[in-house]
Amino acid sequence: MNTHLPPVQDAVARRPHRNAKGVGIRIDSVGRTYGERTVLAGVDLDVAAGEFVAVVGRSGCGKSTLLRLLAGLENPDAGDIRLDGRPHADEREALRIMFQDARLLPWKSVVNNVALGLAAGHKAARATALEALDEVGLADRADEWPTRLSGGQRQRVALARALVHKPRLLLLDEPLGALDALTRIEMHALIERLWREEGFTALLVTHDVSEAIALADRVLLIEGGRIALDQRVELPHPRERGGARFAALEEQVLRRVLQHPPAMGRSAAAPFGRWRWAA
């Protein structure tokens, strides 16, 4: 036994979280428009509990919008989203989102960032947060300021912050887009391991087809405001990127993505202009 392990690591055994099961998603002809621009038009989608789904598409195709609708950050103009058959608004506590940037609060230490929104008392919340930090391998940085961490470490903290709530649905909005290639591969392994241990449903938005195929059970392509491709990935986990089937699949999806010319206009960013926090 390694005697140099920090005490936290001794306390937390690697346990499978079979109790926290994933949630099933049903999206029924959901549409979203910003002014004149229709971003999503009649999207239908069923995701089984515990499934890992990746959504790819050109920038501005509406993949991030779909994720924001699922997260409840925006409301659809048409259609219906249900989680485990219940209205989506009632299930907000079951889901957590990871953004493109880590969005850590710079005035809170790493561990307090992870503990954000935990209902338990200070001590219990800290213990839970430390446990989650240990899962992502950052327990030793618990009391530092987020500004002292690297980009990859910040996203790991953000992942811990999402998982500390034991979400049944984890939404990932291109969380690895800004990371370097090596860090991304590490993060893939980490996300995959945690997904298998915890059994949540995962929805990953990415522009990286290879990332989608490395992680997901299904790869969706959004094009022209609807789902244009629903490709199953029947490769065993963990996946070998060098493999022939992996490469063939990647090639196939990539070709399909490139078939159509890029969407006109700018990417579908949320209209923040008039937004006030206490509205």
Binding site: G72, I97, R103
Partner: peptide, 8 residues
């Protein structure tokens, strides 16, 4: 937005 999404 993050705070809201995290149930604050």
């Amino acid at each position: 937005e993050m705070g809201r999404a995290y149930g604050l």
